[in-house]
Design a protein around this nucleic acid. Structure first.
Lengths: 138, 138
DNA sequence: CTTGAGTCTGTAGTGACTGCAGACCCTATT
DNA sequence: AATAGGGTCTGCAGTCACTACAGACTCAAG
């Protein structure tokens, strides 16, 4: 073991497990500079610590909330720079919130169409299916 | 002009305009066999007719409603084959509806998080921004 | 000392497009 | 008839955010 101090020095798989991130995605985030290059063991194995865990969780959570990689780069830039203009973050969040709401509205419209057309389906083998007609209609 | 009969024989740009589809996407749909290869003029220009318009609208509408290309391939296969088992289509639609509903639920959860955290933003330049903390939290 | 699991690298594939370069072609104007 | 401009053709590269793989290496356990 390169480290035997309790809890310190995670390998890639361990970081993946602790964050729920896909193994390869960690390497990908490093490549696109979303994650810093971690120190390595003599053999070249990546060694992560708690700050890496926190940062990766931040990224994953942001992605879960629908922020793009670029949005998160902005957010992380603020964190890294230390000068967090809360107003800026708020504005960004609110833009994003508007996006989310638009998406919800879209999906609800789709839901209504699908729901009403599926309800009309007899299940029989008929030449015209209401779902197909709903798709064809304009 | 290759055709001068009213309304017949659309060129690619015209099909794009009439359906709202991107010009290149038409060619893409042809390549992945979602759209049939249309007849060509002597010079090699694609010539579309009303059936192409209808089919492309069907595809675009389906995509708008969140069906994948593969879903639509299935749907179109039924249409093309003539043997439309309405029950099958209904089942597919209902699976898809469940997906849509799950997506709506997800987005609403995200909306709630973003909304409440953005609301806490003072707009001042503080060391800790609630949005950032919401992201970091787990 | 071997075996099996984990890690390393670079690269290719995914889905659903979108964009571009360079060669043709067609129409209208000079 | 020559030319200028648009539209169209082709193949291929790029996008986004990953995900998967092949082949070489390293490490700990039996």
């Amino acid at each position: 073991m390169d480290d035997h101090v309790s809890g310190k020095g995670l390998k890639r798989a361990e970081l993946a497990r602790r964050t729920g991130c896909n193994l390869e995605t960690i390497r990908y985030y490093e490549k696109i500079t979303m994650m810093p290059e971690p120190p390595r063991t003599a053999a070249g194995y990546r060694v992560y610590d708690e700050r890496h865990v926190a940062r990766l969780r931040f990224i994953l959570r942001g992605r879960e909330l629908g922020f793009s990689i670029d949005d998160l780069r902005g957010l992380l830039g603020l964190v890294d720079g230390g000068r967090q203009t809360c107003a800026g973050i708020k504005a960004m969040t609110e833009r994003h919130l508007a996006d989310i709401r638009a998406k919800i509205a879209d999906l609800q419209r789709i839901e209504a169409v699908l729901d009403s057309t599926a309800a009309q389906c007899s299940g029989e083998q008929v030449p015209e299916c209401p779902v197909l007609e709903a798709l064809a209609a304009r």
